[in-house]
């Protein structure tokens, strides 16, 4: 492999990793607080992409209105899901919450299938994302830097909210102990809703960016990214936001690089993620950044 090819693969891996990371944050925030594997999260990604698609294709909005509007709509959907399907089950065994998430996931996929149609739709990139950028001998299409820059800006915003604001402090408190946080006079319901909001917004952004990178959208497009992002969240140490970002980039880079160096393994591409996951779980079950938890009797 030449150096230029390496750079190209690197850009590819980083942009894929950025997408995984964006989606993984939503998983990790929800898991950190509710201990819920929110399997509907991947379908939020899909809804985000469809909303942006219809904004541009049907309502003929410019992308800079359509994309934020799509994120807003999807965020609202995320909040409704939390309110209707998760909040009533919070006191019940976690399998109920998990099944509820699965049911919501089924519902979103099949509703999308009925409403939007099962046939894949071609997502049109805004013109400025289609330009070829040449640096030296390396060529990338301009959506790649756009994805990376947007993701970095969003991570910055998120880290600011979580680490520097009152709401963020409440979120961190919730992930330590929901009950005690409530006793401190914090409205836990609202903070949980807020975390879902943040997670869904990032997922929607991830979905739109995903559609610019892989411009074919269909009702099941969120399943694989969702699962991979979830694995990324576990790799980084589920419940830890920085960990999710690191895990996302790690997974994206690994997937691209292994195929780049060993093209004969490309059929097994999806298996890497699981293999890494299982190995990691066996040797360091709490992930890269996760904290070890002592077992209580």
């Amino acid at each position: 492999m030449t150096f230029d090819q390496l750079l190209q693969n690197l850009a590819n891996g980083i942009s894929l990793g950025a997408l995984y990371a964006l989606i993984a944050i939503g998983y990790t925030m929800v898991y950190g607080i509710l201990r819920l594997i929110n399997f509907a999260h991947g379908d939020i990604v899909m809804i985000g992409a469809y909303a942006a698609f219809y904004g541009v294709a049907m309502f003929i909005l410019p992308w800079w209105i359509s994309f934020p509007l799509a994120i807003l709509l999807t965020t609202g959907l995320g909040m409704i899901i939390e309110r209707v399907a998760y909040r009533p089950l919070r006191e019940y065994p976690r399998i109920n919450l998990f099944t509820s998430a699965v049911a919501v996931s089924f519902l979103l996929e099949n509703l999308a299938n009925v409403i939007f149609g099962g046939r894949p739709k071609a997502f049109e990139r805004p013109a400025f994302m289609n330009e070829m950028i040449t640096i030296g001998n390396t060529q990338v299409v301009s959506y790649t830097p756009f994805i990376i820059i947007t993701a970095v800006v969003l991570f910055g915003g998120l880290l600011y909210i979580v680490n520097r604001t009152k709401v963020g402090m409440a979120m961190r408190a919730l992930s330590k102990d929901i009950e005690a946080t409530g006793l401190m006079g914090i409205n836990t319901d609202r903070i949980i809703l807020f975390s879902f909001m943040l997670g869904s917004a990032l997922a929607a952004a991830g979905g739109i960016l995903w559609a610019t990178k892989f411009p074919q959208i269909n009702p099941w497009m969120g399943v694989m990214p969702g699962l991979k992002a979830f694995i990324a969240a576990v790799l980084g140490g589920i419940g830890n936001i920085t960990g999710a970002v690191i895990g996302g980039f790690l997974l994206g880079l690994t997937e691209i690089m292994v195929v780049a160096f060993f093209p004969s393994l490309s059929g097994y591409r999806d298996a890497f993620a699981y293999t890494i996951l299982i190995l990691l779980l066996l040797f360091r079950p709490t992930g890269i950044m996760g904290e070890m938890q002592a077992e209580k009797v």
Partner: peptide
């Protein structure tokens, strides 16, 4: 365990 078994199943 759930994640690991899901991973095995997909593998």
């Amino acid at each position: 365990l759930a994640i690991a078994t899901l991973g095995f199943s997909e593998i």
